[in-house]
Write a protein that binds this DNA or RNA. Sequence first.
RNA 1: CGGGGAGUGGCGCAGUCCGGUAGCGCGCCUGGUUUGGGACCAGGAGGUCGCAGGUUCGAAUCCUGUCUCCCCGACCA
Length: 571
Amino acid sequence: MRMSHLFAKTLRQAPAEADTPNHQLMLRAGLAQQLAAGVYSYLPVGWRVMRKIEQIIREEMDRAGGQEIMMPAIQPAELWADSGRLATMADVLVRFQDRRERDFVLGPTHEEVVVDLFKRQVQSYRDMPILVYQIQTKFRDEARPRGGLMRVREFTMKDAYSFDTDWDALDANYQAARAAYTRIFDRCGVPTVPVLADSGAIGGKDSEEFMYLTEVGEDMILLCPGCGYAANEEKADHKKHELPFEEPRALEEVATPGRKTIEQLVEFLGVPPYKTLKAVFYEADGAPVFVAIRGDLEVNEAKLRNALKAPGLALLDDEGVRKHGLVAGSASPVGLTGVRVVADDSALQSPNLVAGANKHDAHYRNVNYGRDWTASVVADISLARAGSPCPRCGTPLETRRGMEMGHVFKLGTVYTERLQASYTDEAGALQPAVMGCYGIGVGRVFAGAIEANHDERGIIWPPGIAPYDVHLTALGLDKPGVRESAEQVYRQLQDAGYAVLFDDREDLSAGVKFNDADLLGMPLRVTVSPRSIESGGAELKHRSGKDAEVVALADVPARAGAVLAALGSRK
RNA sequence: CGGGGAGUGGCGCAGUCCGGUAGCGCGCCUGGUUUGGGACCAGGAGGUCGCAGGUUCGAAUCCUGUCUCCCCGACCA
């Protein structure tokens, strides 16, 4: 490609909207451009990267036994009503009506459609296992698109679905997909770690996210330096500080004028936070939920949502608190009636706690579960934080931020039961197929690859996904022999099978061209100039290296091939 | 949805408080001089100041409404 006619321009300054390196470089290098919040066009160079990532995904999914298909983005809303997700995913669904006023959604994901397909194609256990995948545009009306390509409303996703006769067979497909993911991210130059994840509204059991650990990531990950335990904050468990047994003492009311927070109570009464009971108010399906958790812990809303099977759970606002007669700052489950109480298991085993008295400026001492209050739901609903003991080995956990590149999970029979996708087993009985699903955000891999591979000058494309192998820079095009030599190198490299970006722009200084080459980040830069010709040919330098070598013009393709091979590029 | 910030030429910004013919850097076009790390000279093009009302002799500037974008939170297979 000749840069003189490239449909994109590099920018010296990044647009103000970008605040992470990958986002700034993407815009400065002219890879993509935003049309609306979370909606992007891909320009030629960026699109080549997307296609390279897709190709790697295809190769690895095929190797894992996957079969590529293509499903429609336009899907009947009825199918979503059948699965129950028309309601549970209502806020992100992009919906429309056709001219006959029939309801449709633009697919945010394809479980419903793939199950429908499965029903028509598979009736027998003999037809399984199945692993199908597609690379497709998804639509989600995200509450807040952000971070360049990291959270967008229209995006390319590779989604794969497996169907098996039982959970053991599912595990084989799951492990195959998991292995493929490791290879895919590796080839794309994005270091990832699998972390335990919450399966969220989609349902299902085991679930892991592939995270690229970086400060600009939007997810919080807990990692154990002792045993390697790794989990998303939403999912992470931790050992809770266990309190020694104490005889329950008599309930005692104390005046606590103006003390509303745990910090204020701790300071005023001289008790440690773990000897207090914290109250947090939520609302689920229109009804208030009183959450009781020990004062040294925080509520993990994902866990709470799962414990209550209430995807619509949200914090109660001040007005709601008043309306339900709750006394913020002095609320407690002691003597509370008419409100559902959920307790973290920490609250049960902790004796003689300080808790609210359900009237202003008063608390109780020596509150004990069972004697003074009970909860209708008891579960681990606590948030693991930096320093929390690892659930496996007790080592203090560390936190890191991460960008989610992919997600694998075992769905089981959630969708195949709801949508009645069953097969006939060996005994002739109908069974729901056991399903897994596996997603990769292609645009996220694109962003992650830039984030993981750049320096102060620009992008350093991993050779496997570089839009071009060679950035050919011609300097002094009006000088004798330069144009001819550069054209010759351009032709020879292309004849040898390399993708070449040829900076044939006239009247630009060497500095501009070199800076653009560094910004655009191809693995190998070849320079043809009066100086290089005088010293015997063309100059080769790889993007991350410091030194250049001069090679005779005729030898450029062979030498370029050797350098690229050494960099790990596969032609 | 709650909180904060911002919309002025392709990009980055000033001008708004205090109303009076819209400016700077980069980029772009023409000519010339240059050419190994973001050149120089001369000339030039390009803006309904997000949009709609209002106040005023006069609005980028004041008032009202509205749209959009960014950040934090909520939300998020």
